[in-house]
Design a binder for these strands. Structure first.
Length: 820
RNA sequence: GCCCAGAUGGCGAAAUGGCAGACGCGGAAGACUCAAAAUCUUCUACUCGAGAGGGUGUGUGGGUUCGAGUCCCACUCUGGGCACCA
């Protein structure tokens, strides 16, 4: 493709200049209004792909636009550089993860520079830097001191492929590992947890305050999963003092309880099991322990195996509502980790209980009137029946009465339960931040003293997928003297989930040189919260929830006094790039490298494509057509080049009416583009600029031509509006025009003059019976009566009139609709 | 199963309840050229009509309204999230 200028030369020149001159470096004492623009912490996976290009194009647009708006924009870059892929690659190549990681960091760094994205590189942060590790460990210890980090044995998700434990959030709905795709199994292990559940309520409430996409907020709410109910006792029928404590959200259906169920791991199961039932119960418990959650649910879907999923314990408890004795079952459809690990079963009003009751021949008693023709379980609302003192009450009222009853008679307590579990942060892997604790036979868990941080992993470690942490096999690392008593002790060999690293990096960016603490709150305060956070929808739950938790916890443990409790004010989630219906990704091998476009349309052309192709939040389908669109974007920039260079332009002296109108159009475009950029409607912003370019072209190349002063002003505006989108070509054209003066990127974003934006004449549409029959130019402030008169006397309308119209609807100055 | 988002020309898309298809891609014709590329100009939803002009049209079926791509109800399809959470 022949172009009127050398794209490569121009782009290289400006990229070097932005880097060398530190154009986008900002200091913490900058007097301007602060703005924090941030793209999500990238994992260094090598050279950029189209997803990166899209992400960093948006981020760079925000940075450059807000800078032109006169703000001090913090635009940092760094790497989420710990993680499994590098470790696995190192095992395969018998090398060290650092080597892979740092090579790929360099690749991605040069990729984003080649795209023309600008950052304050002095602030670069990456997770495996010893300083970052030191302060990540500082945070862990502060959390530990505050009781937010604790060690516990728990049934955990073990991924055989990754040879490590996973967080609940990393297990997909089908029970497989989000990374390796292996079926996750369950193990009981001593692990470290963060007490994120302490913050469940705050995390839920604060969602309302965020300017985030509604669907991300919904996903967060659902993940936290708050449910209000009541806990109460079902006394043992044998008269012993014991009682089975259950949780329910539907106390109003208590008269329909026909049995109770405990989880296979329930502590009272043994006591409940009679001799005759012991064998059956043991078989059920063992089977449940062996199987994962997924296999448990699979049996439900299969339908047929329900009888194997539960067993009668031989014991009975008393339903406090009816005083009836009901059997206690053990079944794997009840989870030990939710509520009290035991439930009252109401088959008529719960789908799962219904299915179980049918298989085991248990009675089903309806307590809520079903809608006309309804069969099967009914979990909806309605009037109560067969419910003694609740009869006739609607659901809400019945709930209240039932709770009062339970509080009075059955040890009832109103309770809130969350789906959210504590965050398991232990990972049996090498390439991560070591957990800084020591285990001493005398002193137990001993935190590593702050002045001994960072705890760094040694390099000479054998990396293999053995199921235990590679660090555990390194005697030099493992053996240590106890910081408290000086005796022989062992170090923790696990590392932290890498989501811990991405939970506070944005704070380090704001004060990357801080020593002695993760960051200085006084330095960070003016920048926080992040004004605009940009990333992929795939982080809607995990990363965003963890970072929100960290922010709150950091404030509470005293590391971030006076900082906001929510880190990201506004979030934008960009759409995915898809190819043949699936996500474009390295693992699928369907990447389209951005490099192939740099020599033809340039980074500017590719950026313009990503901005123009569709709404930024929508997915992009990459097809053969995409190539043509990209070339079209390149051709458009050529037109801008020729136009701004004054090619084919006829100049005349003095301003004509056409010149005045062009200047008005300039202001209209400023208004449109500014509004669109604020609203993340980048595709229409580009369209507006293209329209403006076409207008300028037609005008300047017409035989009458353009006044030189108007031409200069009008094309200056064009370059300024385009500058955040296609920064290189605009910088170059501006420099040719104003050599030695400040760059277009340092100019102030133009402001639309409302008087110029307003039109002197507008087109009013004339309809007859809702059909367009004519148009007429009128003044924008035309009154309704005048508009009606104009319409009724217009020749295009008159020929349709058959008499007095039945009605005339005038919406001045847009249209008049005449109903016959 | 539940929740959310979406469905508009050949394609990407645009449209505070008020001219559907802006902007761009692709296509057609023309200008320039020995020729091609590049560039420029015009046309380009479907349909009836020689033409002027008319009719139809935003996934389907209803509704509200002078007027619906937009609001309401029901449905179809596509994408995403959640899914024993009592």
């Amino acid at each position: 493709m022949a172009r009127p200028f050398s794209v490569t030369d121009v782009e290289r020149k400006w990229q070097a200049r932005w880097l060398d001159e530190g154009t986008y470096e900002v200091d913490n004492d900058d007097p301007r209004e602060r703005y924090y623009a941030l793209c999500m912490y990238p994992y260094p996976s090598g050279t950029a792909h189209q997803g990166h290009v899209r992400n960093y194009t948006f981020g760079d647009l925000v940075t450059r636009y807000q800078t032109m708006r006169g703000k001090a924009v913090l635009s940092p870059f760094g790497f989420d550089s710990f993680g499994l892929p590098a470790e696995n690659a190192a095992i395969k190549a018998n090398s060290h993860p650092r080597i892979f990681t740092e090579r790929r960091m360099e690749e991605l760094k040069s990729s984003v520079r080649r795209l023309g994205a600008v950052y304050d590189w002095r602030r670069e942060v990456y997770s495996h830097h010893p300083d970052y590790i030191r302060y990540a460990q500082t945070i862990f210890l502060k959390f530990y001191e505050a009781g937010l980090a604790y060690r516990a044995e728990a049934p955990v998700n073990w991924c055989p492929g990754c040879q490590t434990v996973l967080a609940n959030e990393q297990v997909l709905g089908d029970g497989t590992c989000e990374r390796s795709g292996d079926l996750v199994v369950r193990r009981n292990l001593e692990q470290w947890f963060y007490r994120i559940t302490d913050y469940a309520d705050e995390l839920l409430h604060d969602v309302d305050t965020l300017q985030w996409p509604e669907r991300v907020k919904t996903m967060q709410r659902n993940w936290i999963g708050r449910s209000e109910g009541v806990e109460f006792d079902l006394p043992f029928a044998d008269g012993s003092k014991n009682a089975l404590r259950v949780f329910t959200t539907r106390p109003d259906t208590g008269f329909g309880v026909t049995y109770a169920v405990v989880a296979p791991e329930h502590p009272l199961l043994d006591a409940l099991t009679t001799e005759e039932q012991r064998a059956a119960v043991r078989e059920l418990v063992e089977r449940a322990a062996r199987s994962s959650d997924i296999e448990r649910s699979a049996t439900l879907e299969a339908g047929g195996a329900l009888d194997k999923r539960g067993a009668f314990t031989g014991s009975y408890v008393v339903n406090p509502f009816t005083s009836a004795e009901v059997p206690v079952y053990v079944a794997d459809y009840v989870l030990a980790t939710y509520g009290t690990g035991a439930i009252m079963a109401v088959p008529a009003e719960d789908e799962r209980d219904w299915a179980f009751a049918e298989v085991h021949g248990l009675p089903i008693v309806r307590t809520v009137e079903t809608p006309e023709g309804h069969e099967g379980p009914y979990a909806g609302e309605g009037a109560h029946i067969n419910s003694g003192f609740l009869d006739g009450l609607e659901t809400a009222a019945a709930k209240e009465r039932a709770i009062e009853f339970l509080v009075e008679r059955a040890g009832g307590v109103r309770t809130v339960n969350y789906r959210l579990r504590d965050w398991l942060i232990s990972r049996q892997r090498f390439w991560g931040c070591p957990i800084p604790v020591v285990y001493c036979p005398n002193d137990g868990i001993v935190p590593v003293p702050y002045d001994q941080l960072p705890v760094l992993a040694p390099d000479d470690v054998t990396l293999e997928s053995s199921g235990q942490s590679p660090l555990a096999t390194h005697e030099g690392f493992r053996r240590v003297s106890c910081p408290t008593c000086g005796g022989e002790a062992v170090r923790e060999a696990d590392t932290m989930d890498t989501f811990t690293d991405s939970s506070w990096y944005f704070l380090r960016y704001a004060d990357p040189f801080s020593e002695g603490r993760p960051f200085d709150p006084d330095q960070v305060r003016p920048w926080m919260p992040v004004d605009q956070y940009i990333g992929g929808i795939e982080h809607a739950i995990l990363h965003l929830l963890y970072a929100r938790f960290y922010m709150k916890a950091l404030v509470d443990v005293g590391l971030a006094p006076g900082l906001p409790r929510e880190p990201f004010t506004r979030l934008f989630t960009q759409g995915m790039i898809r190819m043949d219906g699936t996500k474009m990704s390295k693992s699928k091998g369907n990447l389209i490298a951005p490099e192939k476009y740099y020599d033809t349309v340039g980074a500017d052309g590719l950026r313009l494509f990503h901005l123009f192709v569709g709404p930024p939040a929508d997915d992009v389908d990459w097809t053969d057509k995409s190539e043509e669109l990209i070339e079209g974007c390149g051709r458009y920039l050529d037109r801008v080049w020729r136009l701004c260079g004054g090619e084919d332009v006829t100049f005349h002296e003095g301003e004509t009416e056409a010149d005045v109108e062009v200047w008005r159009e300039a202001h209209r475009t400023i208004a449109r583009v500014t509004e669109d950029l604020e609203a993340w409607s980048y595709n229409t912003a580009v369209a507006a600029i293209m329209e403006y370019t076409n207008t300028l072209s037609r005008w300047a190349r017409s035989p009458e031509g353009a006044a030189r002063s108007t031409f200069t002003r009008a094309t200056d505006v064009l370059l300024q509006l385009l500058a955040p989108m296609t920064p290189h070509v605009c910088a170059e054209l501006w420099e040719q025009r104003y050599p030695g003066e400040k760059s277009v990127h340092e100019t102030t974003w133009p402001v639309a003059d409302p008087e110029l934006v307003a039109r002197e004449r507008v087109v009013m549409v004339l309809q007859v019976n809702g059909k367009v029959r004519g148009r007429v130019e009128v003044a924008p402030d035309i009154g309704a009566q005048e508009a009606e008169d104009v319409a009724l006397n217009h020749p295009d309308v008159v020929k349709f009139l058959t008499g007095e119209p039945r009605r005339v609807v005038a919406v001045p100055p847009r249209l008049v609709n005449i109903i016959l």
